[in-house]
Design a protein around this nucleic acid. Sequence first.
DNA 1: TTGTATGCGTTATCAC
DNA 2: GTGATAACGCATACAA
Lengths: 334, 334
Amino acid sequence: MRNVTIKDIARLSGVSVATVSRVINNNGRFSEETRQKVLQVIEETGYQMNFSAKSLRMNRSFTIGILVPDISNYFFADVVQQIEEKFFELGYSTIICNTARNSDKEQKYLTILESKSVDGIIVISGASEEGIEFNFEKTIPYICIDRKPKDEKNTLFISSNHYQGGFIATEKLIELGSKQPVIVLHQLLTSSSKERAKGFVDAMKKNSLYFDETVNQLILGTEQDDITQQVTDFLTKHPETDSFFTTNDILALKILKIVKTLGINIPASLKVIGFDDVPSSQYSTPTLSSIRQNTEEIARVATKSLLAFIDGDDKQQGKQILIPVELVSRESIE
Amino acid sequence: MRNVTIKDIARLSGVSVATVSRVINNNGRFSEETRQKVLQVIEETGYQMNFSAKSLRMNRSFTIGILVPDISNYFFADVVQQIEEKFFELGYSTIICNTARNSDKEQKYLTILESKSVDGIIVISGASEEGIEFNFEKTIPYICIDRKPKDEKNTLFISSNHYQGGFIATEKLIELGSKQPVIVLHQLLTSSSKERAKGFVDAMKKNSLYFDETVNQLILGTEQDDITQQVTDFLTKHPETDSFFTTNDILALKILKIVKTLGINIPASLKVIGFDDVPSSQYSTPTLSSIRQNTEEIARVATKSLLAFIDGDDKQQGKQILIPVELVSRESIE
DNA sequence: TTGTATGCGTTATCAC
DNA sequence: GTGATAACGCATACAA
């Protein structure tokens, strides 16, 4: 059986399509009587609106696109889920675009999203490493999470306060007695990591500790399997190291394992704090302390702002919103 | 500036809209000359097809819907990502519907997906616990992953071979010397867990071990914080227990922690195998052995089958496809 | 090989 | 308060 359309509803309820449309969208005037009748027929027939037609006509799709580098990353998945939830409640569905950190794919997706007349786009983090430009200057409103947009004037930049995260983590380590904290980072830094590092340095400074690039910083090379060697070497060279702040949890978890094999006691001789609070942090031995991003708040602000953009509000454009983070204290420092 | 349409292309290249459409879709006949011309104009103008119009006309949206209970669950995220990737390559985009295990939301999403004329739907696992029916008997092709459909005839059921997983895990434990293996499960069982348990029992039987409900099985109550007590009690009551097979990794990771505090050595005195191979398994101490589902293959089969359905092939309908799993051996048994 | 004309299901602008 | 009807952008049956 063919799908029932507004035309059928009109015929069956003895009114015109125009009236049916008015009733459905509660827009314009009609008598209570016809409203009842139309609604009843709709109920009976199981009529469902055709989104394609509506989108074509209105040039709106009630759909938003979310560009995300890697949906199987816990932090991203969490944010996406919360955004999806909020938009769903408002009658929007979301097209999730997993760019796999591939800027080609990202560009293709942007084209598709435009083709599909999405009403807005949320860009989470970068496709590839930092520095890639976001070649999207069309008319669709978009907001950026954790990625500095190339042209900040057209959009809004939402991000966790990574600086604060680095700062409070480091202060905590110092407060717990660390005299020689070390920040562990990857060679190529995202802008988030840079902020985290800045927080680290400033916290040292504020607590009258001198930041020495050689002593207080461990920069890891790209090769994965080399980490054990690099960490071991570093600790041999700098045995006074008494705490690590890593720019992400995976690094911290690996270090936890390495340090254990070296017979160093955590947290007694060495304290560790990571970043992101991934689920694995709860299952390591010792459990890992970490900086947790407030995904709920990020999602809330992102949703609210994008909706404002869609409604033509451009007051927030060009702004940057920083969401506070919090320290989750576990065995690795307790 | 208004969006450029095929009408504009037609005008600019001096042909009719019909011809433009033919060229774009490479469908019907046209001279090489006009092809060149049209393509050039398209290039110059940056023309982008309007999906809404195309969908309306063709009654297809080149979009598929994925119903998933919880996108922040690693296994689901992994499957979704792989499905998305494969469909993207074929020119489809995917609407991800996070049902949050809420059957109301699931039903609403199904309505929306139908409204949007999606070409197919992939349903991953159940909205809520097992037993909920899938009230979707419209014409849209759909396939089920890890969820037994109510009406099996209209669809295809793809699932990991959970039975095999339980079986090989148990055989491994026995092969490594376990005389009294114990399966750990939650009170309310999903059909997957039931299969895993069946594999456990059969593996014992095959290896001439008698399965005693009291001795070889630990059923956990619903309260989270009670687990420590329950596991401790069980081990006190059954000190001969020399291995655990848990129906999921989270359970296994918790048990790892509990057992360690009891001073029992893993794997020397007690071996543990989990299920799912979540990322945390690599960071626990000891690292956790687990059964890994082949998400890549699940995604591959799901994509292929759904496309076949969409193309009207119904040979596979009513069938069930089991994807083999594999044992990942780590410190908890080595 | 190409063009004309029609309709997909809606909303919105008129007129009544 | 209601009804005709014209778009929206595209694919296609039918003519030429």
